[in-house]
Simulated scan of single mutants.
Amino acid sequence: MSTGSRATWHFGRLARRSRGGRGGRSAASTGSAGRATSRSTASTDSESDSPPEQALITLGRAGFAARGLVYLVVGWIALMIALDHRANEADRTGALELIAGKPFGLVVLWFLVVGFAGMALWRAMMGLRPNLPDKEGAGSRLASAGKAVLYTVAAYTTARFALTGHASGSTNQQSTDFTSGLMQHTGGRWLVGAVGAGFVIGGALFVKRGLQKRFAKELRTGSLSASGRRRVLALGMVGNVARGVVAAGAGVFLIDAAITFDPARARGVDGTLRALASAPLGPVLLVLMALGLAAFGAYSFCEARWRRL
């Protein structure tokens, strides 16, 4: 190889190496910039909520905790019924009465008031804001608005109980009064039957949600270990199935009341659970339901910690 050829070959190698080095440095620089942008975006996302929105989210988390406490107490009452002990009504009214009789019960009751009110405000926000993730559909926003109304009622009745010591009546009485009132109007039986069918369908959806673990997409559990995540999902699955079974059972009683034209046959949560106790293998079924409702209470605490809000 001549001297000129060798010089040309060495120059070509140096040029290629120089281009490669610049490309590597450029790629590294781009990667660093991408990581910096990602970190900046994450930081911006975490700080994007205004102070009022952050306060509302905190109230929403308190609402999930309040719901969890009520379901834990209802599960305990259902267990006492299964074991043939004298117990309060296995519903929210019975839970409030049981809580009120304990030390610091009044403090807990006012925590429930704040939690339910916070949940109502958060649900209302979910219903009014069309730009929230996974909440673009009108049906989803309408469901959130309906839940806001229910939690507003829960906050009001709990506050009234804390102030006066008088409950608004068990869910059994409320179901009977509701059914009786509707049946006094033309087509009332059909309306009661339609409401009962709605409860059955809603209960079936809860069961499906639990079995298919659809609730998992609402959780942010990246900080949990694999075993911790499995436990949270197990609580959610069992809890949603139990909640769905109770709702469907209450719906069946409403349909029965419509068919027989007998408002007294309507049942709330307490009546549905007590009906299980009188069925074959009733105590065993009721124990399972009690554990399931308690599981939903525990899962509600998990939502208070890890739910995407």
Rank of each mutant, 00 (worst) to 15 (best):
A95G: 06
A95F: 09
L96T: 02
L96P: 01
E97S: 11
L98C: 09
A100V: 07
G101F: 07
K102F: 05
P103A: 12
P103W: 14
P103S: 03
F104C: 01
G105N: 07
G105D: 02
L106V: 06
V108P: 02
L109G: 08
W110I: 06
F111V: 04
F111R: 08
V113C: 13
V113P: 08
V114W: 11
V114P: 09
V114K: 13
G115K: 03
G115T: 01
F116R: 10
F116I: 02
A117R: 12
A117L: 12
G118V: 03
A120T: 02
A120K: 13
W122V: 04
R123E: 11
R123H: 12
M125A: 09
M125N: 07
M125W: 14
M126H: 10
M126F: 08
M126Q: 15
L128S: 09
L128T: 09
R129N: 10
R129S: 01
P130D: 03
P130W: 07
N131I: 03
L132W: 02
P133L: 12
D134Q: 10
D134P: 01
D134A: 14
K135Y: 05
G137H: 09
G137Y: 04
G137N: 10
G137K: 14
A138T: 12
A138R: 15
A138F: 13
G139K: 14
G139C: 02
G139P: 07
S140N: 01
L142Q: 13
L142S: 03
A145W: 12
A145N: 01
A145R: 14
A145L: 15
A145V: 08
G146S: 02
G146K: 06
A148Q: 06
L150H: 10
L150Y: 14
Y151P: 00
Y151F: 15
T152Y: 03
T152D: 00
V153P: 02
V153C: 10
V153I: 14
V153K: 10
A154E: 07
A154F: 13
A154C: 05
A155T: 08
T157C: 09
T157R: 15
T157G: 00
T157Y: 04
T158G: 08
T158E: 02
